[in-house]
Design a binder for these strands. Structure first.
Lengths: 199, 199
DNA sequence: ACCATAACCCTAACGGTTAGTGTTTAACAA
DNA sequence: TTGTTAAACACTAACCGTTAGGGTTATGGT
């Protein structure tokens, strides 16, 4: 009981990591659909059931690193400077995230995702979860007093920005362009504040 | 070749409809996950392969009626009055669509969809396709001269409005609220036109 | 009448996922 | 140390959506 501390936790983490690493390597080598769960399990030297005790689905193996995404967005909201406006803070974070996943090293992974409908669907679903989480965080901010609908809307728009910018020819510029639109949409929901007209 | 017209077409349509009706009935009676494809096929008195020759997946059986969605949105853009602004036209269409799917008769179906992760994922994916199609239509409008990014962004926002409004306590009001935000976002991308401030 | 083929059927399989049932081993208490 | 508990893992067999392969019927065009 109490807090299981020590070797057991470490071994579990090692197993998990070994599965994730093996899976990603095989996927990139041979293609996502070509590699089966049974292949991954065999190569990682674990049972199939063990794979599914660490990852909820085959797709989850690919997005293993993506736990931080949600947290980074909500932290951009909660731990911003006092009275700092919301949207620019979110814009900075989205810029960073877009830059991160359009970096050269990440290219093969995202190409693989683009080529697999299953992976695309999975990521879309993830984004919705992130949007909901972000909406809750925004709604909880004491500096802001928006409708539930307004918060959920802005959260969606922000996540859309991430998704759309990644596909754009020039991701950085796209983020700026979309965030001008988001800024305007947000300004409508704030009766008291002025909108910033120029960029 | 040429145009196959007559009995064959009719019979095919009948089979398709029978499968769709049977599936929806069974799903509503016993629950989506409880009913298997083999059950649907048996009850509709067709082979399993026949089911998949009419519908691409189990989820597609539920959204059988939804072919019109994409078309209605794009038509709202293409066949609006000359010089009629884009956003209000889209708002009207989204209002109608939201009203349609929040009607009393449709409630059990949407409850079923909400309860099944697979169906939710499928619908999310559908929405993205609709957004892409809408974006293309908007980009093709000669009256408008926006960036590709701006068109895709607005299209996403409009689809978001549909999705968010359906979940809201008061869907009709939510559509109006979200479309005020969309109107503002759109105005930013139009250098020449004035925005309409009040609703 | 005759052929091409669209629509359908059946069987068998593939691949992701899960249930059921052990076996090992870290963690902890006596 | 020893015994107990439970977590992590293994193995088997199956479920379910989906597809391939190969055959039958009947519709539509010639």
């Amino acid at each position: 009981m109490t807090v299981p501390s020590g070797r057991r936790e470490r071994k579990k983490a090692e197993t998990r990591q070994k599965i994730a690493d093996t899976a990603l390597r095989l996927f990139l080598e041979r293609g996502y659909d070509t590699v089966g769960i049974r292949d991954v399990a065999a190569e990682a030297d674990v049972a199939v059931t063990t794979v599914f005790s660490h990852f909820a689905s085959k797709e989850a193996l690919v997005f293993e690193q993506d736990q931080g995404f949600e947290q980074r967005l909500t932290q951009a909201v909660t731990s911003r400077a006092p009275h700092e406006p919301l949207i620019p803070a979110l814009r900075r974070e989205i810029q960073a995230l877009v830059r991160h996943c359009t970096a050269d090293g990440a290219a093969p992974i995202w190409r693989m995702i683009d080529e697999s409908p299953a992976l695309r669907e999975y990521e879309e679903s993830m984004r919705l979860r992130h949007a909901e989480s972000l909406a809750t965080t925004i709604a909880a901010d004491p500096d802001l007093s928006q409708t539930t609908t307004a918060c959920r809307t802005i959260a969606r728009f922000v996540i859309d920005a991430y998704s759309l910018a990644r596909d754009a020819a020039d991701p950085q510029t796209a983020v700026d362009e979309i965030f001008q639109m988001i800024e305007a949409a947000w300004a409508v929901t704030c009766p008291s504040k002025n909108s910033t007209g120029t960029a």
